[in-house]
Amino acid sequence: MRVGFTKMHGLGNDFVVLDARANTLPAISAQMAAALADRNTGLGCDQLILLEPSDKADFRMRIFNHDGGEVEACGNATRAVAMLHGEEASIETAGGLLRASPTKGGASVDMGEPRFDWDAIPLEYAMDTSAMPVSWEMLDNPGAVNVGNPHAIFFVENTDVVPLDRLGPEIENDPLFPERVNVNVATVEDRNSIRLRVWERGAGLTRACGTGACATAVHAMRRKLVDSPVTVSLPGGDLEIEWQAGGSIRMTGPATESFRGTFEWDDYA
């Protein structure tokens, strides 16, 4: 069976999108998702995105990381899918219901309300998530925010000198985070701008992470380090994040369709 796909990216964070809203596809295993995501022998992507019918929203979006693990949320993929859909839509995800609207060259997404309680991150035991009393070498006292998926945020003087390729997987898999965690290292440049690098859970170093930008911006606003809206600059480009305490996060930024193609399902099943 030949199946069509759309290759897209948001600031260099790339996806293979499979659309099963009209035509049902067989079940996708973690092994198949990882095989499709493989950049040497598969289609190649950071995340595999599956669109399905939903009885709660306009459609459902499932997200599989490069390692095949299914995760709750992906901000960049949500913008890409909104652009692909072509009109305002409600999107069911494992991390909650999102609303997205296409814009010129991208999309704006209501990412829902952030969660700060230790058991909502989740953490292994209770602690203050605004300044956690833990450290990994040069990285200490992170904040923790759940924006549909779990994030730890470290503020540093210079994001470029942090060996995130080494510390990222160590923190991601620390027993403190029973569902693992996305690791963000950020530098606040002024009241309206943040530089950010992200080690993404199950995917590794990434050129952009939409939920990471949301979590980092919200934590910086919570600490009163920046104002809303704030521009978050990642290696792949910029996102604009808006948030007021007690409200939803709004993320706005670009998305791009790269190309379309087909593959033989049984080659990866």
Results as ranks from 00 to 15, higher is better:
residue 181 V to W: 06
residue 248 S to E: 09
residue 131 A to I: 05
residue 73 A to Y: 05
residue 196 L to G: 07
residue 194 I to Q: 13
residue 130 S to P: 14
residue 151 H to A: 01
residue 17 V to D: 09
residue 74 C to M: 12
residue 151 H to F: 03
residue 242 E to H: 12
residue 243 W to D: 03
residue 238 D to W: 04
residue 219 H to C: 12
residue 251 M to D: 15
residue 172 E to M: 12
residue 235 P to A: 09
residue 248 S to H: 14
residue 31 Q to E: 11
residue 172 E to L: 14
residue 86 G to P: 07
residue 20 A to I: 00
residue 265 W to K: 02
residue 51 L to Q: 03
residue 120 A to W: 02
residue 130 S to L: 09
residue 255 A to I: 09
residue 41 T to D: 04
residue 113 E to V: 04
residue 157 E to W: 00
residue 32 M to N: 10
residue 126 A to R: 08
residue 29 S to F: 10
residue 97 L to K: 15
residue 35 A to R: 14
residue 214 C to E: 06
residue 157 E to F: 00
residue 52 E to Y: 07
residue 242 E to W: 05
residue 104 K to V: 05
residue 90 S to Q: 10
residue 85 H to G: 05
residue 60 R to W: 07
residue 29 S to L: 10
residue 66 H to R: 15
residue 260 R to D: 13
residue 174 D to E: 14
residue 239 L to D: 03
residue 262 T to Q: 15
residue 132 M to F: 08
residue 136 W to F: 10
residue 2 R to Q: 12
residue 241 I to H: 10
residue 3 V to F: 13
residue 268 Y to T: 04
residue 55 D to R: 15
residue 199 W to L: 01
residue 180 R to C: 04
residue 193 S to L: 07
residue 93 T to K: 02
residue 101 S to P: 14
residue 54 S to P: 11
residue 11 L to I: 03
residue 2 R to W: 03
residue 255 A to K: 12
residue 76 N to A: 11
residue 28 I to C: 02
residue 109 V to C: 14
residue 203 A to I: 01
residue 9 H to T: 11
residue 158 N to E: 01
residue 82 A to Q: 06
residue 108 S to T: 07
residue 49 I to H: 09
residue 218 V to Y: 03
residue 236 G to L: 08
residue 167 L to D: 11
residue 102 P to Y: 10
residue 5 F to H: 07
residue 147 V to K: 06
residue 230 V to W: 05
residue 41 T to R: 08
residue 17 V to I: 04
residue 220 A to G: 08
residue 24 T to Y: 07
residue 70 E to C: 13
residue 24 T to L: 09
residue 140 D to C: 12
residue 34 A to L: 07
residue 266 D to V: 05
residue 38 D to F: 02
residue 197 R to N: 14
residue 17 V to C: 07
residue 15 F to A: 01
residue 201 R to W: 00
residue 112 G to Y: 04
residue 215 A to N: 10
residue 110 D to K: 08
residue 4 G to P: 15
residue 157 E to V: 00
residue 155 F to G: 08
residue 103 T to N: 13
residue 99 R to N: 04
residue 55 D to L: 13
residue 260 R to Q: 13
residue 210 G to N: 08
residue 128 D to H: 07
residue 97 L to E: 13
residue 84 L to H: 01
residue 205 L to N: 10
residue 167 L to G: 12
residue 205 L to E: 04
residue 199 W to T: 01
residue 68 G to P: 12
residue 3 V to R: 13
residue 212 G to K: 01
residue 229 P to I: 08
residue 213 A to M: 08
residue 142 P to A: 03
residue 27 A to S: 15
residue 112 G to C: 10
residue 249 I to K: 06
residue 188 V to G: 15
residue 105 G to H: 04
residue 159 T to F: 11
residue 143 G to C: 12
residue 241 I to Q: 08
residue 131 A to V: 08
residue 266 D to T: 03
residue 228 S to W: 06
residue 251 M to P: 15
residue 73 A to H: 11
residue 168 G to P: 12
residue 17 V to E: 02
residue 91 I to R: 11
residue 120 A to M: 13
residue 126 A to E: 05
residue 27 A to T: 13
residue 75 G to C: 01
residue 230 V to K: 06
residue 91 I to T: 05
residue 235 P to V: 05
residue 53 P to C: 06
residue 153 I to C: 13
residue 37 A to E: 00
residue 217 A to P: 15
